[in-house]
């Protein structure tokens, strides 16, 4: 047999699994810490609060995870979310569309179109994803202001508010929707050729292309899906707030990218998991919630958020370098 003697038998080291474990540890440390410091943290009322406020960041983070896995980035997600909210309210209030759901559908389509445009700019015109989506960010945000005239609009449709505030069997509807989407995209990423191809594209685009994968088509779909999910996040936001404003979801892109990176997805592509993203989203949410419960000033909250992000990602990097050094030494 031709076993190559210069290298040991490579054993899959399950790096992703290890990342997930270190994430889960971060999560547990935070939970224990906040439970110890605040009597209100592990109360039913707060858990319901946490559960019902995860969905916006959580859903948008799915799209961002896909994008990052392909080695791209999308910073237009917050602006697209705001645009979706504005489109809904303006169509309903200013254009007198008969049903808010019709308006919401139009908003989802608008988000998808922005995403498709991103994808076209990146694949056809070879524009760097950061630049392309920076442009889209500016355009979407600008359109949100133009369409709304800078105004906040109230949306008092009780049916529509179910999206962001309703619950089924005590579980917030937005959370159910988010869990459903995570399950769906988990299957897509891990068990469909499309999903596996995304990893291949992010890992080595040229290899993917040479293997006959239609790289551009995949990227187009990924950015369109991200636009769609961002718009959905925007709709949940509007539903929760019962109002839309062009200035909403400011900085959402940073929270989302932070959560995804925290979840172990590599900014250079090829690596990442939705399980990690899911935990990343929860960690950031718990951090915000816990620090607010502890009555920490918002400026220190910013510091704490950044510190946790750097610590978690930093530890993971160190751990990975360790395991890589071990692997090298073995060779």
């Amino acid at each position: 047999m031709n076993r190559i003697e210069s290298a040991p038998l490579p054993v899959p080291r399950g790096r992703q699994a290890a990342t997930t474990i270190s994430l889960a540890a971060t999560f547990l440390i935070l939970v224990v810490f906040f439970a110890w410091r605040s009597p209100n943290f592990l109360t039913a009322i707060n858990l319901v609060n946490l559960a019902s406020t995860l969905a916006i960041v959580g859903i948008v983070a799915i799209g961002e995870t896909l994008v990052l896995i392909t080695g791209g980035v999308d910073i237009s997600v917050g602006a697209v979310a705001a645009l979706a909210g504005v489109v809904t309210s303006v169509l309903l209030l200013n254009y007198g569309w008969p049903s808010i759901w019709l308006c919401a559908l139009a908003a989802l389509i608008a988000g998808t179109i922005v995403g498709l445009t991103n994808g076209l700019l990146i694949t056809r015109f070879k524009i760097n994803p950061l630049i392309a989506t920076l442009g889209a960010y500016s355009i979407a945000r600008g359109l949100a202001f133009v369409l709304s005239g800078g105004q906040t609009n109230l949306l008092n449709d009780p049916g529509f508010q179910f999206l962001g505030r309703g619950a089924i069997a005590g579980i917030p509807f937005s959370l159910l929707l988010m869990l459903l989407l995570y399950a769906l995209f988990w299957v897509v990423l891990n068990h469909t050729p499309f999903g596996r191809n995304l990893y291949a594209i992010g890992s080595n685009r040229e290899a993917a292309r040479l293997s006959g994968i239609r790289v551009n088509r995949h990227l187009l779909v990924v950015y369109a899906v991200t636009g769609l999910l961002s718009a959905l996040g925007g709709l949940i936001n509007v539903s929760q707030l019962a109002s839309s404003a062009p200035r909403s979801a400011v900085g959402l892109e940073f929270t989302v990218i932070a959560a995804v990176v925290l979840g172990g997805t590599s900014l250079s592509g090829g690596k990442g998991s939705l399980v990690g993203t899911f935990i990343g989203v929860i960690i950031l949410r718990i951090l915000d919630n816990g620090l607010t419960l502890l009555n920490i000033s918002s400026f220190w909250q910013d510091v704490a958020r950044g510190t946790v992000l750097l610590l978690a990602v930093g530890f993971d990097q160190i751990r990975q370098r360790w395991s890589e050094r071990e692997a090298r030494r073995g060779q």
Binding site: S38, L241, L293
Partner: peptide, 22 residues
């Protein structure tokens, strides 16, 4: 509480504060 001058941030901080005054 720091509203950061946006609706959703006000929403978030109030959501997170209400559990501490059950």
């Amino acid at each position: 509480l720091d509203s950061k001058n946006t609706q959703e941030e006000a929403f978030r901080v109030v959501s997170d504060t209400l559990p501490s005054i059950p």
